[in-house]
């Protein structure tokens, strides 16, 4: 009996000892529990990305200065890799010379640079590891795009938001005011990029409200863009991309006129990923379509 009590006591101590490692826990919400259940049930092999994109010139512009790029690979079998995805949106700056050239150049240089870096790792036998870190590769790709744009299309400018996804790690390189969002199974939506725009900065400083920012006359003024200024410091970050969640990358033609809540509603209510993406673009056009609209929507299956 004593041994029995001791055993119980001992187990309790085991739990207490966990606290030594300062593990902080909190109960999960019902939505989170539900989403975990859904995923556990719908386990998908091999892990992969479901990708779709949509674009529109909008209703008030004649020229499309947005560019988008998607690529996703799955290598499964004896020697399997985590699924690899590269998704980029660039929004050429209006009013500048050759905005569409700048956005297209950014896209090609960045995707070309990254794919070259990963070629021997993904497609070579034996697979050769990439020496640099994911963030270093992303940063170098963006700097290379900056160099090429300054040479080939001086005076032009573009935003760029590039997502490099390996398995469940999402590495973002970002300059300007295109955006990346993550939408989780429990219906949360998070912007994972920060606009390099004057109004966003004024908003962060508490000088204007989000509502004022949305209609501010200088809401299109950027303080960082590819091809503009001698110096460039892209934002880099890596965040988890959980199975089942969605990645949305879009130009301000979408997020500028369709509020986050509506974006979320459209994605979660659409019957398919393709329809969701089309509906996002339609919603932006329905709201007046003042600018070019581009969207890439990715779901992680696994």
């Amino acid at each position: 009996m004593l041994k029995f009590i001791k055993k119980i006591f001992g187990r309790n101590q085991q739990t207490a000892q966990q606290a030594l490692d300062n593990v902080v826990t909190a109960p999960l919400s019902d939505a989170q529990l539900q989403s975990i259940r859904t995923i556990t049930v719908n386990h998908y092999e091999p892990p992969q990305f479901l990708v779709t994109s949509a674009q529109s010139v909008g209703r008030q512009r004649e020229l499309n200065e947005d560019s988008l790029f998607t690529l996703s690979t799955t290598i499964a079998g004896h020697s399997s890799n985590a699924p690899f995805g590269l998704f980029i949106i660039a929004d050429g700056m209006g009013g500048h010379q050759y905005g569409e050239i700048a956005s297209n150049t950014a896209l090609r240089v960045i995707s070309g640079y990254i794919l070259k870096k990963f070629h021997n790792s993904l497609f070579n036998i034996p697979s050769m590891p990439v020496e640099e870190s994911l963030q270093e590769v992303m940063s170098a790709a963006i700097m290379e795009a900056q160099r090429v744009i300054l040479n080939e299309a001086p005076g032009s400018g573009t935003t760029v938001t590039a997502a490099l996804v390996l398995g469940q790690q999402l590495t973002i390189g970002h300059v300007g005011d295109s955006r990346a969002y993550l939408l989780y199974n429990d219906q949360r939506i998070d912007a994972i990029t920060r606009d390099h725009s004057l109004v966003r900065r004024l908003e962060e400083l508490g000088q204007i409200t989000a509502a004022e920012a949305a209609v501010h006359p200088q809401r299109n003024v950027l303080y960082r863009a590819l091809g503009q200024g001698e110096t460039l410091d892209p934002d880099l970050s890596t965040v988890p991309f959980p199975v089942g969640s969605y990645l949305l990358i879009c130009s301000d033609g979408l997020w500028g006129v369709v509020p986050d809540d509506e974006i979320k509603k459209i994605i979660f209510e659409a019957p398919t990923l393709q329809r969701a993406c089309q509906n996002l673009v339609s919603a932006a056009n329905a709201a007046g379509g003042p600018d070019n609209i581009s969207a890439i929507l990715v779901q992680s299956l696994g």
């Binding site: 890799n81 985590a82 990439v130 640099e132 870190s133 994911l134 963030q135 270093e136 390996l166 398995g167 469940q168 790690q169 590495t171 880099l236 890596t238």
Partner: peptide, 13 residues
Amino acid sequence: YALDAKSGWLIWR
């Protein structure tokens, strides 16, 4: 170093 725990990909250093 920061590596993806599943695959060992170098995320940043």
